[in-house]
Nucleic acid binder design. Structure first.
Lengths: 244, 244
DNA sequence: ATGTGTCTGTGCGATAAAGCACACAAGATG
DNA sequence: CATCTTGTGTGCTTTATCGCACAGACACAT
């Protein structure tokens, strides 16, 4: 892939694009372009991380796997986020699995290089920490949402959060996979999705969901979606406002 | 309160106690001793934080309040934690409320002083970041637990996490308050607590719960309790192992 | 075209928890 | 002591979701 295109791709990640020129120049030679396949596991729960990933077109889920095999998504990162917080937070590991939910590209950076860059402080450190706080909000909101909202509301929230990181309106994803993300039954997702389709908010056929009415989805979702995006904007808006 | 006792109290917070002598010496004159009353709100959702709090004998809950008034606890901090992550993460604010769940003491530090100390890096920064990661695990686990486990299991988890930060076996707390924390009905808590009492794990009378059989509670709890404490130990154990 | 695996729809019964209503009891207050 | 407030127990109906079973429908390969 030509260098020019790589550069474009790098800047598709909002966090990297937000860096001032001098800080970006310091990092850019440590960035490595990678392509992520659907279902690829960036790291397992407990694995020592080797790289931090900045998705550009890929979307990555943070999945928690219970002892009995049940799964639930606790967070998600696309081109407005990163994967591998544990590297600069100090733990080297997290208790979740990072799995590619939508194939695409990402830029990655070796753990040691990242830690060195983080230690320099500056905007880079600030962005990483602010992003971490926004991820905490996302996780908290998931916790609350799991407790208090219906499957249908949660499905709307999930579709919207995904849509925000997609370049199209088509999401390649079966009900079964969504059920794993939301930690509910497949049938529950089918019923909720059927209802949304009946109301003309989405359309789906065998593993592809098309968003038809974003505004309608926002109405059908619980407050959680708005809280999460608002908090992201509050924390990182001053850096990346021009890119959204 | 005499200075000597204040010093003892400061060191009751495991994170502060873990600091090497030179770093502690740098901070200690910025620490202010405060007493926290039951129900006191350290900050509201959206408030700009002024201080970071290191509880010594108090226990503080991070409560999320929905638009419809429903509440759910997303995290908790006692003498092994701190309150006010948003100060060093950069957001200055979080979308949760910090409320004193068990009266006691804490040490606090002005936001500006904290940020200066954080920027110096060193063990202090490392501890703050590692604690933040452990809090993320706690929040994630709460999310998963809300989705997949029964009220009774969650009650056990909650009792154990609290007990870990208490100096006694008696917890002053009504079923109603616990219900607010867990985001469930009061009756649900009464039934679960009744069952635990019948099995001899706890005893309660009008707002006071006594832990009778910790090991039994651990068995009755879901895996979530162990995951959270193990991760805390992994992240911070090297610093504070001697104090536990 | 035929089969085969995958995805979605649907119809049960079982269950956990919600929502509501109210009784009862222990302390606190006057 | 009488009353009030607060905390807990219990019963009932309703609801959401689960767990399971299976049928149809589509896509793809041979």
């Amino acid at each position: 892939m030509p260098l020019a295109q790589q550069k474009d791709d790098v800047l598709m990640n909002h966090l990297l694009a937000a860096l001032p020129a001098d800080e970006f120049a310091r990092l850019k030679f440590d960035l490595e372009f990678v392509s992520l396949a659907l279902g690829e596991v960036l790291y397992e729960s407990g694995d020592k991380l080797t790289h931090i990933y900045f998705p550009t077109t890929a979307i990555v889920s943070l999945l928690y796997i219970m002892e009995n095999g049940a799964t639930a998504e606790i967070g998600i990162a696309g081109n407005n986020g990163l994967i591998g917080i544990a590297l600069f937070m100090g733990g080297e590991t997290t208790s979740s699995r990072a799995v590619v939910q939508s194939a695409g590209n990402a830029v990655r950076m070796k753990g040691a290089k990242l830690k060195a860059a983080f230690a320099l402080g500056g905007v880079f450190q600030d962005i990483l920490l602010r992003y971490t706080q926004s991820l905490m909000t996302q996780i908290s909101q998931t916790a609350v949402c799991n407790r208090l909202h219906s499957v249908e509301q949660q499905l709307c929230r999930w579709l919207l959060i995904n849509h925000d990181q997609m370049q199209t309106d088509k999401l390649v994803m079966t009900h079964d996979l969504i059920a794993n993300m939301l930690g509910v039954r497949r049938e529950g997702v089918s019923i909720a999705a059927g209802s949304l389709q009946k109301r003309g908010l989405i359309k789906y056929v065998r593993g592809t969901i098309t968003m038809l009415d974003r505004a309608g989805l926002e109405v059908a979702a619980c407050e959680c979606y708005q809280v999460v995006t608002d908090e992201y904007d509050r924390l990182l808006g001053e850096y990346i406002s021009k890119n959204r």
